[in-house]
Design a protein around this nucleic acid. Sequence first.
DNA 1: CCAGAATCCTAGCATCGCTAGCGTTCGTGT
DNA 2: ACACGAACGCTAGCGATGCTAGGATTCTGG
Lengths: 193, 193
Amino acid sequence: MSIQTRRERERAERERLIVTAARELAEAEGWEAVTTRRLAAEIEYSQPVLYSHFKGKDAIMAAVAVEGFAEMAEELRKARTAAGGTRAALAAVGEAYTAFARRRPALYDAMFTHTVDLPFATPEAPSALHAAFGELLRAVEPVAADGEDPGQLTETYWAGLHGLTTLMRSGRLPEGAHDRRLALLTAHFTASD
Amino acid sequence: MSIQTRRERERAERERLIVTAARELAEAEGWEAVTTRRLAAEIEYSQPVLYSHFKGKDAIMAAVAVEGFAEMAEELRKARTAAGGTRAALAAVGEAYTAFARRRPALYDAMFTHTVDLPFATPEAPSALHAAFGELLRAVEPVAADGEDPGQLTETYWAGLHGLTTLMRSGRLPEGAHDRRLALLTAHFTASD
DNA sequence: CCAGAATCCTAGCATCGCTAGCGTTCGTGT
DNA sequence: ACACGAACGCTAGCGATGCTAGGATTCTGG
């Protein structure tokens, strides 16, 4: 039994090694540099080993994405609880969201643009994902007007944040005015009440 | 001289053939089906011909994207001018934008997610691109509050629309409540003043 | 100590975007 | 009218991708 557990532990460690290496490589050189050959070399195993842990490259990206959701949830929570007042909290969360996306672009891509292997708007979604959305929800909820569904309002605000980050990252929006645009978005979600 | 012009005309026709074939293939089977081999077979020429017209696959996608901008601008214009009142106009434009994205997903991807070959927020950007943004601008401008930069406000509203479409398209947002979310977004941009 | 199972690697497949180099066809000048 | 030169478009191939089949090697259990 002990041997069995040791093997399982080693397997789990190697799986973490894969995910960590994939993430570090992606953050250092972008996801286009994360090839199965390169990743295999990085963990000092051969390519097929990757496929004994994950169904394919997408599944590896999904694992990295889950890590990202957990970290984002944590950062959003800190920003929200550190702020006084509901408007300040929403602004702080929006700021934290876009800051996360700009600081960890590869992680953000894995979470929100690339992979689709993960279930999202269902109970089967990873708990880290629910946690991240929950932080947004808690910041948006207090500013929802009567008759507005807080969940839908959160989704809409989230879409605004997501649009700002992706359009800016792809060069569609100039970087300079980002803070102004973010302030406009937040203002228009707190103005109604 | 006549011979020269005939050749140029034929070249231009073949270039349009390439762009049209690429677009149709993408709209029918998605951009992942648009390989250079497949596209070459479709236009009944060999692969290298593509590279005598375009620098690479990205440039072909960029050409398709420009077509898309022109059509989107037209649809936004129709929606805006057909609506009475400023709030109705903004709602109509938002509706038209997301409807376009849902009806022509491959085109939308070429315009807003895939290619980066095109200049965007500069005067060098294709005129069709300015036209499309201009339609959004004309719809947003009237609802801008004092002290709000209309251009930045338009960019922010645009980001909201873009976020809604991409998150929905990738399965991150449930399709069902799309209309509600769109209504929320528009409402929060018309509520002020 | 040996049979059987688990594990991991070498080698390869099909496909991708893209390019070098060669024939062939066409327009031009004598 | 004819040979020459220059475009033109094709065949063939390169390097790299994600992924997999098959065998060699190691380890486990009787």
